[in-house]
Design a binder for these strands. Structure first.
Length: 821
RNA sequence: GCGGGUGUGGCGGAAUUGGUAGACGCGCCAGACUCAAAAUCUGGUGGCCGCAAGGCCGUGGGGGUUCAAGUCCCUCCACCCGCACCA
């Protein structure tokens, strides 16, 4: 009898030993190829989620595989530790955000260790440590010095009752009220810090040289949102220039009015006394709504006339200027020329307010008339009513590839009215947060000298610990009696610190660099470490970061490259997204639904190896799916069977050589398949392959294989292949049952013996007219002629051929013979 | 509306990229062990017809290309995700 498989007895034991032995330390070693494997770092919310396991343990398995393949693999971990939940805890439970955060980190470290992952804990970094945010601040200063950080008004959600700014998640409901007091939220303009992400708009659309999922590429490309067209300068009647962007310069002659965003700076100047009252009312209403409400497509368009007029520079037409909230200040210039004949929105607006419609593009066989058009025409045609451009062809190509657009652009430039131009949806990154628990913005304001960075030798600007959480809702940094008082680095006079802190996405934009040398105090990272490890070879995490973190970190890197701090164009070479584990009911896990799967409990019940392998086996990793409390039994049984086969000795005897040969074939075929699947992140078939091999081993076990080299090889290779996915049981079997030298995790990955995977006899499918009719066994190196003859001779085939005429015999080597009659 | 994706047994999912559809596992059925149950082990398990041999049907629907289609093309449907009055 053998002792039983009790994961709780072996898992903590090995975890402690691996840790004590520094088995997973990753150090620079120029003699080996490096591999930087990274999973997105967790936020220390307090408890590890099964989703963390799903993201991290397959990545760990792959990192372990690559290590056995001979790579020097770094697989680090840390915490994205600044952020709002800590402040909410502070307010609701009267605990300091720092204490809350560090307590959570402690707890989560323990939970993370139970995964048995190969993290090098020496490289752990937490973004709220002063030795970390020192360099977040330093990087801000570099961006500022290079003109990539600037201060400008930006709008925030503001609760007039609590007298505080609110984060997006603190604004609730359709009516957008304050989370705390229920008061409707208003928009407020504050001076805030921005990074010039738009400088990198074009480059952020370029994914050459990196292997990222199509989905993420599409989302980022869409987010950056390039449109080709022209910018054209109109003038108000008073002579103020009013620049607009249009994707359809070919329709300039059909512009019959202009629309400004309600917030546009020229609105006050163009509005006449007669219309002022109406315009003011409209502006105030628009300010109350946020962009999401304003941009509801199905909403009926509204707007008011300003009383002002503009001159269309192409034909000197005098056209009215309106304001309407369907024009956004945040895109283009916040002003548009309206061409109702050829734009659906402008058409709807013109019909509603009875504005003129002049068609300027006409397809063949049509006679458009402004009064009778029932909808805007957006297709191809020829230009009409457009002076000397009449007859110019306009295709349905977008942008500059369209001959009509190209022709007009050239002419605009020649006349000095406008120029070909590109517009992006991407906006600059607003990084100011009116919060306490974030990295301070190391800037000082002096009445005399303006804004200056804190001198670098005075970094980091530390967050004060002695803060109070007063119910004003104001940031404690602002309320702190002395913290903000400082001296001007320029003139030495009294000055004030910036009391806003940075968006936590700034901290997480560079954590992969801090892992290189988390305690380095001369810069972001130790250059030696950087040169060896960067870039990140594989980055894994959820797709929900596609348009936030994953854009910010690329921006951070590209800006760093241009400032001479970083090298290369991209921080992460390969990106892969895992899916999401849902509750057993197929819904997102949430405490209120009561469908949360607690990984600690699963580990207690089944062991870490079982949870790891179930997560790999039960789903396509990229898809995820509902947790299934029954399916996990499959891997639990499998692990028990592994325990048994390595515990019970096989029978000795004189086995059939064919049995040994086929065992060896199966071992090497499995090795081949498993290796490939690790490369391609197909974890589910890694496990199923290992299950198949175990089944095979179980069937030959009693055939007298004990003592044969084939059986020894099978057992040895099995554990090496198992080691990445189920590291604890593999180690236990390797050292305790096989008595091999510790550790299985430092063994090389076995080489496939191509010869062993070959077969002497193959089964060919015999088809008649594409339908499976028979199977024939032939030598693997069978000639085409013999294969065809054997197939034709098959009794089943003959029956279906009958006396029909043979038309063709298709032979696919190693696969089939298809007889067409 | 635009962009991306998914659709295969009762369930999770395989399928060498155009070549045996349903690997592996869950569940279920039968058998062994047991006084019994659990656990474990052995066998079976897409649907329909048939005692059987065997046959027919089958990868969301319809059409097509091909000796051959889950895989390629056209078209329609359903669901999921992202963006959305972007000028």
């Amino acid at each position: 009898m053998t002792e039983k498989y009790i994961p709780a007895e072996i898992e903590p034991k090995w975890q402690a030993k691996w840790e004590a032995d520094g088995l997973y330390h990753a150090d620079i070693d120029p003699s080996r190829p490096k591999y930087y494997a990274l999973t997105m770092l967790p936020y220390p919310s307090g408890d590890l989620h099964i989703g963390h396991w799903y993201a991290m343990t397959p990545s760990d398995a792959r990192a372990r595989y690559l290590r056995m393949k001979g790579y020097n693999v770094m697989f680090p971990i840390g915490f994205d530790a600044f952020g709002l939940p800590a402040e909410n805890a502070a307010i609701s439970r009267n605990i300091h955000p720092k204490d809350w955060t560090y307590a959570n980190i402690d707890r989560m470290r323990g939970q993370l260790r139970s995964m048995g992952a190969m993290w090098d804990w020496r490289r752990e970094a937490a973004s709220c440590d002063p030795e970390y945010y020192h360099w977040t601040e330093w990087y801000f200063i570099q961006l500022f010095k290079h003109g990539l950080a600037y201060r400008a008004p930006g709008s925030v959600d503001f609760c007039p009752n609590c007298n505080t700014t609110l984060a997006r998640e603190q604004v609730w409901g359709e009516d957008r009220h304050c989370e705390r007091c229920g008061t409707p939220v208003i928009k407020k303009d504050l001076d805030q810090w921005f990074f010039r992400t738009t400088d990198y708009a074009e480059e952020l659309r370029d994914f050459t040289g990196i292997d990222w999922p199509d989905r993420v590429v599409a989302m980022q490309t869409n987010w950056v949102g390039r449109s080709e067209g022209a910018s054209v300068v109109f003038h108000t009647e008073q002579g103020d220039p009013m620049e607009i962007f249009t994707t359809r310069p070919d329709t300039l002659w059909g512009a019959t009015f202009m629309v400004l965003a309600p917030e546009h700076p020229l609105v006050d100047r163009v509005t006449t006394a007669e219309y002022r009252q109406e315009v003011e009312t409209y502006k105030q209403e628009a300010a109350r709504q946020d962009e999401i409400q304003r941009s509801a497509t199905d909403k009926e368009k509204t707007g008011v006339f300003t009383g002002g007029f503009a001159i269309n520079p192409v034909n000197q037409a005098r056209i009215p200027i309106w304001i309407a909230d369907y024009v956004m200040m945040g895109y283009g210039t916040g002003a548009i020329m309206a061409v109702p004949a050829h734009d659906e929105r402008d058409f709807e607006f013109a019909r509603k307010y009875n504005l003129e419609i002049i068609p300027v593009i006409q397809p063949e066989g049509e006679q458009f008339h402004g009064d009778t058009m029932t909808e805007a025409y957006i297709g191809p045609g020829v230009m009409i009513n457009s002076a000397h451009f009449d007859g110019t062809e306009v295709s349905d190509a977008k942008g500059w590839a369209n001959p009509g657009i190209k022709a007009v652009n050239d002419w605009l430039e020649e006349k000095g009215i406008g120029k070909a131009d590109v517009s992006y949806k991407l906006r600059d990154w607003l990084i100011s947060r009116q919060r306490y628990w974030g990295s301070p913005i190391p800037m000082v304001h002096c009445e005399e000298c303006g804004w200056h960075p804190v001198p670098e030798d005075q970094l980091p600007v530390l967050l004060p610990d002695d803060v109070e959480w007063l119910p004003t809702g104001e940031s404690p940094l602002k309320l702190h009696p002395t913290w903000k008082n400082t001296t001007c680095p320029e003139c030495g006079g009294p000055a004030e610190r910036e009391t806003d802190t940075m968006d936590t996405f700034m901290c997480s934009s560079w954590y992969h660099l801090r892992y290189l040398s988390p305690h380095y105090d001369q810069g972001l990272f130790d250059p030696e470490e950087y040169d060896y490890w960067m870039p990140v070879d594989t980055y894994t995490g959820g797709v929900e970061h596609a348009t936030m973190h994953l854009i910010y970190t690329r921006f951070f890197h590209k800006a760093g490259r241009d400032m001479g701090i970083l090298e290369g164009n991209e921080p992460m070479t390969q990106l892969r997204n895992q899916g999401q584990i849902l509750g057993p009911d197929g819904q997102r896990m949430s405490k209120s639904r009561g469908n949360v799967i607690d990984p600690d409990k699963q580990v207690q019940q089944y062991g870490a190896d079982a949870v790891r392998t179930y997560l790999m086996f039960g789903y396509r990793w990229s898809d995820g799916g509902p947790w299934n409390t029954e399916n996990i039994q499959g891997v639990v049984r499998w692990l028990h069977r592994i325990w048994s086969i390595f515990s019970d000795e096989a029978k000795k005897g004189e086995p059939d050589p064919a049995v040994l040969k086929s065992l060896r074939r199966k071992v090497h075929q499995t090795l081949q398949q498993v290796s490939k699947d690790f490369e391609t992140f197909e974890f589910n078939t890694i496990i199923s392959g290992l299950m198949e091999l175990l089944n095979e081993m179980n069937t030959v076990k009693d055939a007298g294989v004990a003592g044969t080299p084939e059986w020894a090889e099978a057992r040895d290779y099995y554990l090496r292949m198992l080691a990445p996915v189920a590291p604890h049981i593999a180690e236990e079997m390797w050292t305790e049952k096989l008595g091999k030298p510790y550790s299985v995790h430092t063994q090389p990955w076995p080489e496939v013996d191509e010869g062993a995977t070959q077969v002497e006899e193959i089964t060919l499918i015999v088809q008649v007219n594409g339908k499976l009719r028979d199977r024939i066994t032939v030598p693997a190196d069978v000639s085409e002629e013999v294969a065809k003859q054997t197939a034709l001779a098959s009794e089943a085939a003959q029956r279906f051929i009958g006396d029909k005429e043979l038309r063709k015999v298709v032979y696919v080597p190693g696969r089939l013979v298809n007889i067409v009659v």
